[in-house]
């Protein structure tokens, strides 16, 4: 019995990874939108473009 590993931390890690992947997915999607809108991902350039709008 002692040789069984506690499954809970694994479950937690897996869930955290899944959550992390989802957030990354959303972030990338949003980045694509930013790129489509401003044609760049350089923050300075984006802010510059917003100011000129």
């Amino acid at each position: 019995m002692n040789q069984v590993v506690n499954p809970l931390p694994h479950v937690l890690m897996l869930t955290a990874i899944v959550v992390g992947v989802s957030v990354t997915g959303v972030a990338l999607a949003v980045m694509i939108r930013i790129y489509r809108k401003y044609g760049t991902l350089e923050e300075d350039e984006i802010l510059h473009k917003i100011e000129n709008e």
Partner: peptide, 24 residues
């Protein structure tokens, strides 16, 4: 949070950028 990121990014103007800030 994830749903909020998505909802905010649906907005007009600089919404995607604001959403990205929020994501970070």
């Amino acid at each position: 949070s994830i749903t909020t990121y998505g909802l905010i990014a649906l907005g007009r103007g600089r919404a995607p950028l604001s959403s990205f800030n929020y994501i970070i």
